[in-house]
């Protein structure tokens, strides 16, 4: 099933992380593609830029950001967009994504993915900013559903309906983070399968998978562990509904060897192809 931009299923990728630079340069591992955290490469001309340039010569690269702050009521930061656009050109990035969130106001960046109230006002506000950003970048923008730890009393939309409506109003696509769906479903008490079943299929170009930390009262999206079985089952449901979509394994804390990260990413292939019981025992 193709997305409306005919962007390819890049296969099973991993994040390009500093701790793996030496291994990647020495081994050029057989990973399908890399995702970079855009901000880590915007203002550095040293080793990260050198490694990125060599990586982009050999692998497809997608850019994923954390500071776009698409939901903020601050003005759009065009200096940031200028650098983002230049980096995308340099790396021949397949696409640029960020999050449905805001990171700060009054010129301050909290460096956190803060939640949006899902209201009509938010919908209009984000849709307008997405259009402005996409026009500047001269390419579609892809937004990821964030993990959230609170819900606003004023929200009148579910997150999945908000995202679906936003894609139509703004022209944006989606990066569906399956772990985030699961995390938020626990934190807010909704059905994660209903969430993924309501996401418009032709808008999703990438999937994120990651581990998380269960705190008992809530789950934190820490990217610090293996993917848990319920998230794999959710991933299977997404595959059954949407077909093959570029899948990226995020591991950003307590990062193990590259081979371990890559092996975790490749489990997704099993969940795409194996019947439910066999995949569970194989993983």
């Amino acid at each position: 099933m193709a997305n409306r931009w005919n962007l390819p299923d890049l296969g099973f990728g991993a994040g390009l992380r500093t701790v793996h630079f030496q291994h990647i340069l020495a081994e050029w591992p057989a990973v399908d593609w890399f995702e970079i955290l855009s901000e880590n490469f915007l203002d550095t001309g040293g080793r990260p830029a050198y490694v990125l340039d060599l990586t982009a010569e050999r692998y497809p690269v997608a850019m994923h950001g954390v500071s776009l702050s698409v939901g903020s009521t601050d003005p759009v930061n065009f200096e940031y967009l200028r650098k983002l656009k230049a980096l995308a050109g340099r790396t021949k990035a397949r696409w640029i994504s960020d999050h449905l969130c805001w990171t700060g106001v009054a010129g301050i960046n909290t460096h956190d993915l803060l939640p949006m109230p899902y209201t009509d006002e938010s919908l209009r506000h984000v849709a307008e900013r997405v259009r402005t950003i996409s026009d500047y970048l001269e390419r579609p923008l892809f937004l990821e559903n964030p993990s959230t730890y609170l819900e606003f009393a004023e929200s009148t939309w579910t997150e999945w309906d908000f995202l679906a409506e936003l894609t139509g109003l703004s022209g944006c696509g989606l990066l569906l983070d399956v772990n985030n769906v699961y995390v938020s479903s626990f934190n807010h008490g909704f059905d994660p399968f209903e969430y993924v079943d309501r996401i418009p299929v032709d808008r999703v170009v990438q999937i994120h998978l990651a581990g998380h930390t269960h705190k008992g009262t809530h789950i934190l999206d820490t990217h610090s562990d293996h993917v848990v079985d319920p998230v794999w089952e959710l991933y299977r449901r997404v595959y059954q509904r949407m077909g093959g979509i570029a899948t990226l394994l995020e591991w950003d804390d307590s990062i193990p060897s590259f081979d371990t990260v890559h092996a975790e990413a490749l489990k997704a292939r099993w969940y795409r192809t194996m019947p439910q019981q066999e995949a569970r025992s194989a993983a």
Binding site: Y149, L150, N187, H218
Partner: peptide, 23 residues
């Protein structure tokens, strides 16, 4: 309390404090 819904386990301010702690 006016802004945030409680969860099954956490009061509104406790939910906001998750963000405060992570900041």
């Amino acid at each position: 309390a006016a802004l945030i819904r409680p969860s099954r386990a956490l009061a509104p301010l406790e939910r906001l404090d998750i963000y405060r702690g992570m900041y």
